[in-house]
């Protein structure tokens, strides 16, 4: 590696590390805060930070999607739901903290155990990077001819996953229509006596 490249690598790694640290700080603030509005805003910031991290990790398509979906759509949905419900989390002790800590500690321990065997970060010879992913890089130019390999894989090699993904979005839209749309009986039990929206006189 040339000295210039090395410096660049150093700085990009430094950016990664600081973004990651900021993510933890934001997540911790979200955990502590009880102002739902603040938490929703922080979750937008959290998504933007992770989008920035994805750019730094070369995942530009993912960063774009995360910024649009995570920071944009998701925040708007959360704000809407918050306005329709409550603004503030109740101060309360749920008695679940100990259960939460136990579960979380167990899961964390399992993952930390797993990291001991993980290939080093950025290792080009790691199995994940040297096998199918590399094959996609090799073949796309000749077989698909699209410059963006992520697009090529998304639409061709793993196109069926993408069809499923479209179906997931359709399902979610249909689900929201069933839950909130006409005939959903909004308002719970009491709505039974009320005529459906479009039947209202």
């Amino acid at each position: 590696m040339t000295p210039g490249a090395e410096t660049a690598a150093f700085w990009s790694r430094l950016i990664d590390l600081s973004l990651l640290t900021m993510l933890v700080l934001v997540a911790y603030t979200m955990l502590r805060s009880r102002h739902l509005f603040a938490i929703v805003m922080l979750s937008g910031i959290y998504s933007l930070l992770s989008a920035a991290l994805f750019v730094s990790l070369d995942a530009v398509d993912v960063a774009f999607t995360e910024a649009a979906v995570g920071a944009g759509v998701s925040t708007v949905l959360m704000l809407g739901a918050m306005l329709l419900t409550v603004r503030r989390e109740k101060t309360q002790r749920l008695g679940r903290a100990s259960l939460g800590i136990a579960v979380v500690a167990l899961v964390g321990a399992a993952l930390i155990y797993a990291t001991t065997a993980m290939p080093a970060f950025g290792d080009p010879a790691a199995p994940a990077n040297s096998y199918i992913g590399a094959v996609y890089m090799e073949r796309t130019a000749a077989e698909i001819g699209v410059p963006n390999v992520v697009t090529a894989v998304l639409a061709s090699y793993r196109g069926f996953d993408t069809l499923g993904e479209t179906m997931v979005i359709f399902t979610a839209g249909l689900g929201v229509m069933l839950l909130l749309g006409p005939g959903s009986g909004r308002g719970g039990r009491s709505v039974k006596d009320r005529p459906g929206k479009d039947e209202a006189p």
Binding site: A59, V62, V69, G70, L77, A81, T85
Partner: peptide, 28 residues
């Protein structure tokens, strides 16, 4: 490596779909 990016693009969409349904439930 492009493959994890592809998988996560799918997972992000799945995530927002779950959020939407969950929030609709919360409103109800």
């Amino acid at each position: 490596n492009p493959l994890p990016h592809v998988l996560i693009l799918t997972a992000i969409v799945v995530g927002i779909a779950t959020t939407a349904v969950g929030l609709a439930l919360i409103v109800r």
